[in-house]
Design a protein around this nucleic acid. Structure first.
Lengths: 249, 249
DNA sequence: TAGTGGTCTAGACCACAGG
DNA sequence: CTGTGGTCTAGACCACTAC
């Protein structure tokens, strides 16, 4: 094998980079399995495992008798980009900005207490910011943390940068997150900050973040101006989508 | 094998149903691979393929030396549910309904032609329907197909049921789809059909569907009443999310 | 009909977790 | 240590596509 890498990983990495560099462009056929077997001095097993990986990532399409084809490149998002607006902007090549409206220590209302799995009226730290994209208002951000987590923010300059980064640096363990996406009309605060009329459409992303052992560390509500942000997802027949659409009714 | 099913499908189906019926409950170990080999009189290949399928669905967790474990059930959405409102309703336990507004054969405008990757003014079939959830207006659906695909719909009773099912039955190859989610204000048609005011927030899901070799077969625009539908996605640190948030600016 | 990818077999060795 | 799952080999047959 040469290095410590597994053979199928070797093959996956080669194909993935060749695809992303358009050495194999969308619509092109990939080398056949037998060619890859020869090139990597491997049996079919590792080659097929690599193919399965790429297929599950939505990069290729294959079928009986057909050559394996490169699909249009599918964008993915890193975990940091999922959880941090600042990081998302950085990755997208935009400049993030923030104008803090308030940082509050207060008792949790019943809904928030449930979302954070703490006692009602237990103390939480809430942050309310207008977020900018290249200097233009783009999103209204409401972040809520249990006191244990949020205490790190009471002395933090919330106009200075990424709260997520600060929490990580403070030793907070953030392992996974659930996002729920829907549409909502602007409330008076949203309307005033974003310069739109009350009731105008916003894209809402509610997020709950958890530690490795499942304790909630954040419950947030981000509202984007239409045109500022959208979500894109690729689904392949036979690969159930990790994004589920649910009805409230 | 008994029936015409592949062995790995047989094993996958058995395990999936045993898991969903809590015959193997979350936290329980699955039978070992060698047990399954014996039970299904199979070699390890098909057993491992079945395991890989369940792993990709987030149903099980496995690792070197460890027993394979049943995870807490993760909500996922089948490809059929992704692409078909009727199927999504069925899976969610709701009754889908539809009131067709129009079925049109017309030349594609430039935007639509680009989305379907056909010549501008090439003929397309467009369907415009109000969709119901348990009899109540829930979504406005605009479907567009290249003529080659859409011709199967010109003689189809679009008030009767699932267009997706009809296309599959007509031999159309639908292999993967890309969905883009954002928020938009209701246009006059939306407002009238859904009984809301113009400009009221709607959750828009635009979809492009493709054949196995990457040819677009559908370009659609669904607009949901808030509260009718939302999207939920789980992301784990270190696992890039297949859902990407992109900015239009 | 030649070549493709999908499936399957029957072995083998390894790293690792658990008793 | 035993047994597990992860990896790999070297064959084989089949269904299907493209020529």
């Amino acid at each position: 094998m040469g290095n410590g890498r597994q053979q199928h990983e070797e093959i996956t990495a080669y194909l993935r980079s060749a695809i992303s560099s358009h050495e194999f462009a969308p619509g092109d056929p990939l080398p056949s399995e037998s060619e890859l077997c020869q090139r990597f001095e491997s049996s079919r097993g590792p080659v097929r495992q690599a193919m399965a990986t790429l297929r599950s990532e939505g990069l290729i399409s294959s079928g009986r008798g057909r050559r394996t084809i490169v699909l249009d490149t599918v964008p993915t998002q890193s975990f940091d980009g999922v959880i941090s607006y600042s990081e998302w902007c950085r990755q997208s090549g935009f400049e993030a900005g923030q104008i803090t409206q308030s940082v509050t220590r207060r008792p949790a209302d019943p809904t928030l207490a449930a979302a954070l799995e703490i006692e009602p009226r237990a103390p939480v730290v809430s942050i309310f910011r207008l977020r900018l994209l290249n200097g233009i208002p783009a999103m209204v951000e409401r972040l809520n943390y249990p006191l244990e987590v949020g205490q790190h923010l009471l002395t933090f300059d919330t106009d200075s940068g990424s709260i997520y980064q600060h929490l990580i640096d403070s030793g907070v363990d953030i392992n996974n997150a659930t996002r729920t996406i829907d549409a909502i009309g602007a409330d008076p605060d949203d309307a005033q900050l974003l310069g739109i009329t009350e009731g105008a459409p916003l894209l809402r992303v509610r997020r709950r973040a958890f530690t490795s052992n499942g304790t909630p560390v954040e419950s947030s509500d981000d509202r984007y101006l239409p045109g500022t942000a959208s979500f894109t997802l690729n689904t392949i027949r036979g690969n159930p989508s990790p994004l589920s659409m649910v009805s409230a009714r």
